[in-house]
């Protein structure tokens, strides 16, 4: 868990690649997880479309295309990365894979990162494909500030993975993961601007909702698309995202469980 010096970087990357490659093979063999990860972010945005149509999004400078895209990317954080990684971390712990890996040369950080890499990469690829698809099919146009979308994607993916590790710490079995992962999924869907953009919420409610873990990431993704965010809002979102990442990483290092409870 020490700092990374150049002499330790190459072996570290080699170990990460070896672990990620094995995890990718395992991901490919878990049909249920792959289906959820791929289908939900595509299908769910259409189910929220009627609700979006009710809202006066134009007044806030949000096109229906941008609204549906952020919904899709938000669902991708939640289902391609977060819930799928809760499942993976718990399964690897219960199979004693994490314990076995810790007997080797991998650091704890490498074990968690290498295990997460395929799901995070899948989430990123999905977001990029969805963005391209949206731009073309839904006439959403090109993002006005792509770097904000990119920052939002990075923050959302890192946080989804870290929160998955944290959720896995309090989850005993793969089955109970379907319950322990629900709170964040619900809170994020309703409060983080995935289904209802925070911009259209009453001010006081919105200012609370903006503090939820995935809110800044969603906000940045959407702001990149619409260009409708002041420097002050962007900095606020970045600070909130960073604070959540620091807290999540600290909590994982402190409380992550490497072995099943006996």
């Amino acid at each position: 868990m020490s700092g990374i010096a150049p002499s330790t970087l190459a072996p570290s990357l080699r170990r990460l690649r070896a672990l990620a490659r094995a995890e990718l093979a395992l991901l490919g063999r878990n049909r249920g997880v792959v289906f959820t990860a791929l289908a939900v972010p595509l299908a769910l945005p259409f189910s929220v479309r009627p609700a979006l149509d009710q809202l006066d999004l134009q007044k806030h400078g949000i096109g229906i295309g941008a609204a549906m895209l952020t919904a899709a990317i938000g669902f991708s954080f939640l289902f391609a990365v977060y819930t799928s990684l809760v499942n993976t971390y718990v399964a690897r712990r219960e199979e004693l894979v994490l314990k076995r890996l810790r007997t080797g040369e991998l650091t704890d950080t490498e074990i968690l990162a290498g295990t997460a890499l395929p799901a995070v990469t899948l989430g990123l690829a999905q977001a990029l494909v969805l963005s391209a698809g949206c731009a073309v099919l839904l006439d959403a146009g090109a993002p006005r500030a792509p770097y904000l979308t990119l920052l939002g994607l990075v923050a959302g993916l890192v946080l989804s993975a870290a929160l998955a590790a944290l959720t896995a710490s309090v989850t005993r079995t793969v089955e109970s993961g379907q319950v322990t992962a629900l709170p964040l999924v619900f809170v994020s869907m309703t409060g983080s601007g995935i289904t209802i953009p925070t911009e259209v919420m009453p001010k006081r409610l919105a200012s609370v909702c903006e503090l939820l873990p995935l809110s800044p990431a969603i906000r940045l993704v959407r702001a990149g698309w619409t260009g409708g965010a002041s420097a002050y809002e962007v900095l606020g979102a970045l600070a909130t995202a960073l604070a959540w990442i620091v807290v999540a990483v600290f909590a994982v290092r402190r409380w992550f469980r490497w072995e099943p409870r006996r």
């Binding site: 690649r17 070896a18 672990l19 490659r21 094995a22 093979a25 395992l26 063999r29 878990n30 894979v97």
Partner: peptide, 17 residues
């Protein structure tokens, strides 16, 4: 301590890496 769904060769390759 080994993922059930990996083959013997894949497990060895992962560990070798």
């Amino acid at each position: 301590g080994f993922p059930a769904e990996l083959t013997v060769a894949e497990t060895a390759r992962m560990w070798a890496g």
